[in-house]
Design a protein around this nucleic acid. Sequence first.
DNA 1: TGAAAAAATGAACACTGTTCATTTTCTTTG
DNA 2: CAAAGAAAATGAACAGTGTTCATTTTTTCA
Lengths: 203, 203
Amino acid sequence: MTIASRKQREKLEMRRTILDAAKEIFLEKGFHSTSLRNIAEKIEYSPGTIYLYFKDKDDIFHALHEEGFTRLLSMMQPLQLVSDPMERLLAMGRLYMEFAYHNKDLYDLMFIMEAPINAGVDREKWEMGDRTLNFLRQVLGECQERGHFKGMNVEYLSFMVWSALHGMCALYCRERCQAYEHEQETELLRNGMEYFIKLLRQA
Amino acid sequence: MTIASRKQREKLEMRRTILDAAKEIFLEKGFHSTSLRNIAEKIEYSPGTIYLYFKDKDDIFHALHEEGFTRLLSMMQPLQLVSDPMERLLAMGRLYMEFAYHNKDLYDLMFIMEAPINAGVDREKWEMGDRTLNFLRQVLGECQERGHFKGMNVEYLSFMVWSALHGMCALYCRERCQAYEHEQETELLRNGMEYFIKLLRQA
DNA sequence: TGAAAAAATGAACACTGTTCATTTTCTTTG
DNA sequence: CAAAGAAAATGAACAGTGTTCATTTTTTCA
């Protein structure tokens, strides 16, 4: 219980406090309407204080970015119980979309926004993203062992699969589903997903 | 040659001047680094003047948004010469991706950014987008007449196809291809596209 | 030529992210 | 326990943003 360790703990607690406040405002008002002064006011500190714990605004959202991946990854853990790789792949796809649907702003932050990934160019920070991608690579590899996706490169295949899912989620997140006047967003997502699964099953 | 008509023409010319300046700065520096004062300075007018021709910043980018669709649509016209609908569909996909690749910021503005589409909720403004989508609907319909995509609803099918392409383009535009450390963006896009086409051919 | 209308101005407002000299609080040492 | 030193927090200041509007300039028409 040294005093230095307490200081360190307090530093982390302060980071958490800032992060929680930022997340709350961000999930409610969106990225661009979340100002540092908003966050500072919420935690009852001055704006300058935040800069003692985070490099800049991007740094804060980069941290939330990380949390998003941790959440997504933890949601995916149970999938490892699904023994058939093809079924696992499809369950993974549905889960990915479910995540995007129920965590719109977080998904946006993770996969659509410009800032965070550019800010932390350092590779280690993108670690959680890598792990998620490896999850997909692995299941696709196993699918191939069972005769699916013959002769395809796993890298390009995973990119294509990820893109198809991301495309639907991104159009949803950025309100482009409105292009379909007579269809509900949920129906577009559900059926789009099922049609894509149909394609995958045939390959 | 009434004076009123000249006034009207001048109004349009001024809009064009502003739009051209905005586009140039925007394509060079991106959306968030394009300020109204930048635009005003470029055209050698005061900031306030811009508000006599556009409602607000979003309104300007909404206009550019329109131009993007006009450009994309005009690029697609020659496709009508491709008689086989399946080949036309695939050519259309490649062209769509080509457009995104060579007009990154414009694509971003059209399909990823938040502002413009929300700003102009009025339906007529999204007309060009509708026309592009109808192009896709039509070719998919023709594909079905020739036995492809049996029993599928064209609305959901088109959403799925659009999403798959958009997903790749969006990951590209927002630098998420960096997740693939050892692959080049162009190769990811090219092969991702070819793999998706492979799936479509089988359906 | 002078009054009315239209167009352009630029200062002002309320905001933004970020910095940094100053003040406050906590810790260690004499 | 008090004084010196270190750490933490402050909030004013800077340079920027989008937007508004009273004022000035320019153009039109009688």
